[in-house]
Design a protein around this nucleic acid. Sequence first.
DNA 1: AAAAAAC
Length: 496
Amino acid sequence: MSENASLPVVPATADAEPAPPARFDTLPLDPKLLRAVADSGYLTMTPIQAKAIPIVLQGCDVMGAAQTGTGKTAAFSIPLLQRMLKHENPSVSPARHPVRALVLAPTRELADQVADNVKKYAKHTQLRSVVVFGGVDMKPQTAALKAGVEVLIATPGRLLDHIEAKNCVLNQVEYVVLDEADRMLDIGFLPDLQRILSFLPKARQTLLFSATFSPEIKRLAQSYLQDPILVETARPNQTASTVEQRFISATDDDKRAIIKQILKERSIRQAIVFGNSKLGVARLARAFERDGLRTAALHGDKSQDERLKSLDAFKRGEVDLLVATDVAARGLDISNLPAVFNFDVPFNAEDYVHRIGRTGRAGASGLAVTLVTKSDARLVADIEKLIKRTIDLDVYELESERPRFERRTRDDASERSERYERADRPPRAAGPVQRAPAPPADPFFNKPYEASTRDEPPAWEKAKAASPVKGLSSYIKPKRQVAALFGAKKPAPAEG
DNA sequence: AAAAAAC
């Protein structure tokens, strides 16, 4: 609690405390906004919305922390639009309107999604919004900016391009939002962010939202805020309680087979599989495809066109698996996603919270399975510390030792990497990419979805009953027991 | 150990 001592805090609601959900129409909002909210099908507010919206309406700077999938986008966009409507100056011609609100997001897909939401809530108003991000033609963005826009949603790099090209002027911005604020404030983004903020007026309302805020970032963030109010629901860095989290002991060779077996066992129709590297993700996607699953890959080495196509195909249910890097870890709202797999344990514990937050959204249930190898002990310990929960490491029994694929030979592996080069990085020169014909689809994964009819306990429950597995953390903290569990050669580094 | 974000 000491890290919040200097901030006025709206107290977190205890999980057990039953508060009647407040309706949007009890808020002092313009009928045009209320109509748009009603059009979206929303009646009552989520806890973060109920707490943050009145405070944003008052004009305060806000640091908002709430679990994944609880409607943070609406929590800032609805009150900002309201404030903009209230202070409209109708005497100025629309083309001369300055940008009044700026929303920054860490990935292009997220910026796009936030822009869709802003458009949805602003649709009955005169307020115009536009999204700008890299990897696509600048010209349409430039034209939209020049035509005049009140709300600008952007990723940092492309926004700086537009600023330098004098396509937009930000010296009259009244409202700034950093979505996934802790990411925007980390080392990789901070220089661009500071540059952008240097173009904005000092007197403005600034809003930071994320599901994760480390104490360090909280402190850093305060230097960008004026008299901020901290709005938290439940505990920060918390995973949604509707997500069943499983950690399974695995070897690199077994990981794919384990994922496929769990998908079948639980009749899971769709899942995101996260990997840590772009190359690893590209290869893994092709491997799943060869196994007969309809698979799309999403990572930063793909063209923006391919990225959007992969995500769309997944959202439309045309593919079973989305294999992705952390480009897909944050913010993306994929409705009713039943499961997330961590093929690799993420390097940052925060990213674990965000990755598994793609499932179990808006109160739905979800499954998050993390495959843990002996070299991941340290990372798992970091996750346990962050989410303040101990995690049991389950042993999972595969139906057969190497069910679907042979141990690969050196030739096989090099042939495969060649294919990766051809398929995932099309040559710059013109000419269609030759792809191997898709293997016949696995009939299991292509049948229409039906709710789980499982009455057998899953294999990990059986394995657990057979040989009780202890909490992983109890093995990690004392050094010599790490060696006992994993046969590690070097002791884990001492706790800080 | 990586990823993301501009050309």
